[in-house]
């Protein structure tokens, strides 16, 4: 599915990712944890194609293609989805128009017929119920004036509509109350299957109580410094990140 090899990336000359290696196979759920500033969100952004990040070394293969060679929209059309940590508010573009444009952009790119207004609306309403969003959100401008929880539900709605092959959740749990957290978890769990993979980026173990990962990786100073199963997340929850930092310091000393 996704194979990251020795990935280095920088922002304005400041190196952030310093040699990431990660393989995700179909059906797997990987969690990336790490202290603030470790490069978690950068990794998510680089994979989605955000322009501010310059890849200086390494490669990323996504479903047999060089991901770094693809435009942002092509990555999405090929089945990569990024749930944003901070979804953007876009006045003047209604949620309904946006969702339909997005569904049809991805369908067209994959050789499927576009959905007409009624078909799209039916599908959207069905998925909205699953993420407990009121239909009134369709007429509102995209994310404008939405609460933090509403924005994240809207991200999950998009994920369910676009049915990606790989979904990257960038700190989707930040700032969520327990109800919203459960909606997010329910959305992800309902979509888990043998063909679809998830990369869950999070600072806290809390989300992983609800979305149980197959693998947990700890990112620190732009590298994956430790990998394990879900018990690693529990250990981090108990002991914090300091012991990881100390271990890394001891190794590099």
């Amino acid at each position: 599915m996704l194979s990251i090899k020795n990935l280095h990336a920088q922002v304005e000359e400041t190196p952030i990712l310093q040699g990431i290696n990660l393989d995700i196979k179909p059906g797997e759920v990987h969690a990336i944890m790490g202290p603030n500033g470790s490069g978690k969100s950068t990794l998510a952004s680089v994979l989605a194609g955000r322009e501010e990040y310059e890849v200086t070394e390494g490669s990323v293969n996504f479903l047999g293609e060089d991901l770094l060679d693809l435009d942002v929209e092509e990555r999405a059309q090929n089945g990569l989805f990024l749930a944003f940590q901070y979804p953007i508010e876009i006045p003047g573009v209604t949620n309904a128009t946006f969702l339909r444009s997005s569904i049809n952009a991805i369908r067209t790119a994959n050789g499927q017929d576009e959905l007409n207004g009624a078909q799209a609306l039916k599908l959207i309403r069905e998925k909205m119920a699953a993420v407990e969003m009121d239909a009134s959100f369709l007429k509102r401008s995209l994310n404008e004036g939405f609460s933090g929880g509403e924005k994240k539900r809207n991200e999950m709605l998009q994920m369910m509509l676009l049915e990606p092959k790989l979904a990257i959740l960038d700190e989707t749990d930040s700032g969520l109350d327990i109800d919203a957290l459960q909606v997010v978890a329910k959305a992800v769990n309902s979509m888990r299957n043998t063909d679809r993979s998830f990369l869950v980026v999070t600072h806290y173990q809390r989300l992983l109580d609800h979305i149980v990962p197959d693998f947990v990786h700890v990112l620190y100073n732009g590298r994956i410094v430790r990998s394990g199963d879900k018990s690693l997340a529990l250990e981090l929850e108990k002991r914090g990140y300091d012991w990881i930092k100390e271990e890394v310091a001891a190794q590099t000393a």
Partner: peptide, 29 residues
Amino acid sequence: DEAPLFYLMARGIDRGTALGMLQRGFLLE
């Protein structure tokens, strides 16, 4: 802004269409 453009493009919408949506949105009032 690049941020809204990126957001729309990250949902599979090509740059030209995304720009059109944002421009229309700007004039909507």
